[in-house]
Amino acid sequence: MPKVTHFEISANEPEKVIPFYEKIFGWKTTKLEGPVEYWAVQTGPDTEPGIDGGFFRPNEWFSGTVNTIEVTDLDEYLDKVRHHGGEVVTEKMTIPGVGYLAYCKDVEGTLFGLTERDPGAGGWRKSESTP
């Protein structure tokens, strides 16, 4: 059964918001390289329960908090989202060394992410296979 494995928090001024969370919760934040400004967040040791996340600047299709669900086959789950009345908001994207990611909306318009783990995933690109 797929589980929520990641969260994202949008921030107009990440440089201001990130220290807030770091000071209160002790989170460790790292700015990642890539085509989108993104800060990865480690919320605690991997040996303890919980999930890690990230910060991003709001964009034209979302601001707020997003939960990401890990699945075994991203293309299969994107088809399921469409079949059951949801919307695929972004194309399947490659995240180097991590895997693949896409964002969707449920039948009420709530945004969520889907990810497929593949440590062998190559450079930043959008897949041509997913509309």
Rank of each mutant, 00 (worst) to 15 (best):
V89N: 02
S63Q: 11
T65C: 05
L74W: 01
C104V: 11
N67R: 13
M93F: 13
G99Y: 02
S63T: 07
W61I: 13
D73K: 05
V98G: 05
C104M: 03
V81M: 13
Y77V: 14
T68H: 00
T68N: 03
T68L: 06
V98A: 12
H84C: 14
K105C: 11
N67Y: 15
T65F: 04
T72W: 12
S63P: 01
E60N: 09
D73A: 10
L74M: 03
E70A: 12
W61D: 05
T90K: 04
N67E: 09
G97C: 02
I95H: 03
E87C: 07
T68V: 05
M93G: 06
V81P: 01
I95M: 09
E91Y: 12
P58D: 04
P58R: 09
P58E: 06
H83P: 13
G85R: 13
G85D: 01
D73S: 06
L74T: 01
F62D: 00
E70H: 07
E76F: 14
R82L: 14
L78R: 06
N59P: 04
H83Y: 15
E91L: 08
H84V: 11
T72F: 12
T72K: 12
P96M: 09
P96W: 05
P96S: 09
G86A: 11
H83Q: 15
K105G: 10
M93Y: 05
V89K: 00
T90V: 00
